[in-house]
Simulated assay, not measured.
Amino acid sequence: MPTTTATATVAVVSARGAQRWDAGHPWIYRSDLIERPADAPGIVRVRDPRGRPLGQALWSPASEISLRLLTREVDAVIDAGWWHDRLGTALARRAPLAAQASAYRLVHGEGDGLPSLVVDRYDRWLVVQLMSAGLEQARGPIVEALRALTGCEGILARHDAAVRTREGLPRETALLFGDVPQEIEVAEHGVRYLAAPWTGQKTGAFLDQRENRALVGRVARGRALDCFSYHGSFALHLARGADDVLALDVSAHALERAHANAARNGYANLRTREANAFEFLREEERAGTRYDTIVLDPPAFAKTRGALPGALRGYKDVNLRAMRLLAPGGLLFTASCSYHLTKPLFLEMLEAAAADSGRRMALRELRGQPLDHPELLTVPETGYIKGALLEAMD
């Protein structure tokens, strides 16, 4: 496996690029490079146009994001010990989570000062994503540090994300150490489900909604509906407090997993239905059906900035119809994982949906990302989850 240490290779960036770092954002784009370092990706020292040293960064020759800040210490030796210390700091931050769940994020990229690196724990195994060419050169010491810090039994690389192509890197899923099962049972706030690290969404499961699922489990009651259910992660928590839960998804295969997860927990009150959520909600509205608890956790409707107008219409429509299906006093937990849908836009969309629904909707709680997905105020790209718990007041 490749290793890396600090090098004498230097990149010179514009005043605008330097200002980004000074303002707390770790990225410098290709357009702000005045002098390129050597073509090989890796770690380089960075200076401003006046020769002032700025720090050391990951260098990606093919990427639009050319430099990702690692440290402002110009003379630091970025060797195996450096990676061990930086990763150890990130892992220590997650220590409280071990009592709540067996699966959570150990490294959240830029949020932990480890740009383009994602590490997720699934019980005794790790799944990693190295998503820049500069970071790929440090694969060896990163893997060794993770082995030493966690004592894991296996490390899997889920290098199938599209961003790897833009970095000039191959897309693959590969075993880096030990062995990793096809399925891993996860325990989360008293609920158990199967994660699929080799083939599942993201690195095997949606870990970023863990605390929101626990919230839903605490407030669920009566007749409950989980739209966009996938493997039933929200539905499983709903089943702890609701009398009857319907898990809805367009994928029959996903619902098979949801049904199996319900059986794993002994929940006889969880049913599944294959359907398009938009069509189902319209049909239920026409039928006058009422639910006491509803969850809306759709996929990212706005994957690009250009898709935002259409996404807003979709988010508003699905929330409007869910609001109309609530029984008096009913609760709606609604979320968005679209980065381009900002928090202000999310709230504006909910306000518009409430106005058109004809219901008096109260905001009970705003939700963001959990401890293991830190969102830095100066790096908006580290945050994408928005959530709200709403109550129908009539």
Rank of each mutant, 00 (worst) to 15 (best):
Arg264Asn: 07
Arg213Asn: 08
Arg290Ile: 05
Ala263Leu: 15
Glu283Ala: 15
Leu238Cys: 10
Ala263His: 13
Cys227Asp: 02
Cys227Gln: 03
Phe234Glu: 07
Ala287Gly: 07
Glu283Met: 11
Ala214Met: 02
Asp243Gln: 14
Ala263Cys: 15
Thr289Pro: 07
His259Lys: 13
Cys227Phe: 02
Leu215Ile: 13
Arg218Asn: 10
Asn212Phe: 06
Leu255Cys: 01
Ser233Met: 09
Ala263Ile: 07
Leu246Trp: 02
Arg264Ser: 08
Ala252Tyr: 00
Arg240Val: 15
Leu270Thr: 07
Arg240Lys: 15
Asn276Cys: 12
Ser229Gln: 03
Ala252Arg: 11
Ala254His: 06
Glu285Arg: 12
Ala235Tyr: 01
Val250Gln: 14
Gly288Met: 06
Val219Phe: 11
Phe228Ala: 03
Ala263Thr: 15
Leu236Val: 11
Ala242Val: 10
Arg273Gln: 13
Ala220Ser: 11
Glu274Lys: 14
Thr272Glu: 10
Cys227Gly: 13
Tyr267Asn: 12
Leu270Trp: 03
Glu283Cys: 08
Gly222Asn: 04
Arg210Leu: 09
Glu256Trp: 05
Asn261Lys: 05
Gly288Trp: 03
Arg213Pro: 05
Arg286Tyr: 04
Asn212Trp: 04
Thr272Lys: 03
Arg218Ser: 14
Gln209Glu: 14
Tyr230Pro: 08
Asn265Glu: 11
Thr272Arg: 03
Gly288Asn: 05
Ala287Pro: 07
Asp292Ser: 06
Val245Ala: 03
Ala263Pro: 06
Ala247Val: 07
Asn269Phe: 11
Glu256Asp: 15
Arg282Asn: 01
Arg271Cys: 10
Gly266Leu: 08
Arg271His: 10
Glu274Gly: 02
Gln209Val: 06
Val245Gly: 04
Ser233Ala: 14
Leu225Phe: 06
Ala239Gln: 07
Leu238Pro: 01
Glu284Trp: 09
Ala254Tyr: 00
Ala239Leu: 04
His259Arg: 14
Cys227Val: 14
Glu279Arg: 14
Glu211Phe: 05
Thr289Lys: 06
Arg213His: 09
Thr289Asn: 13
Tyr267Val: 06
Ala220Arg: 00
Tyr230Asn: 11
Ala275Met: 01
His237Gly: 10
Val216Pro: 06
Gln209Thr: 09
Glu274Gln: 14
Asn261Thr: 07
Arg273Phe: 01
Phe278Cys: 02
Val216Phe: 01
Phe228Gly: 02
Leu255Gly: 01
Phe280Tyr: 13
Asp244Leu: 12
Arg223Ile: 02
Leu236Trp: 00
Phe278Trp: 10
Gly222Tyr: 01
Gly217Tyr: 00
Leu225Pro: 01
Thr289Phe: 04
Ala263Val: 12
Val216Ser: 00
His231Gln: 14
Leu225Gly: 03
Arg240Pro: 10
Phe278Ile: 03
Leu255Asp: 00
Ala277Phe: 04
Arg290Leu: 11
Ala254Glu: 05
Asp244Phe: 08
His231Lys: 11
Leu236Phe: 05
Arg286Val: 08
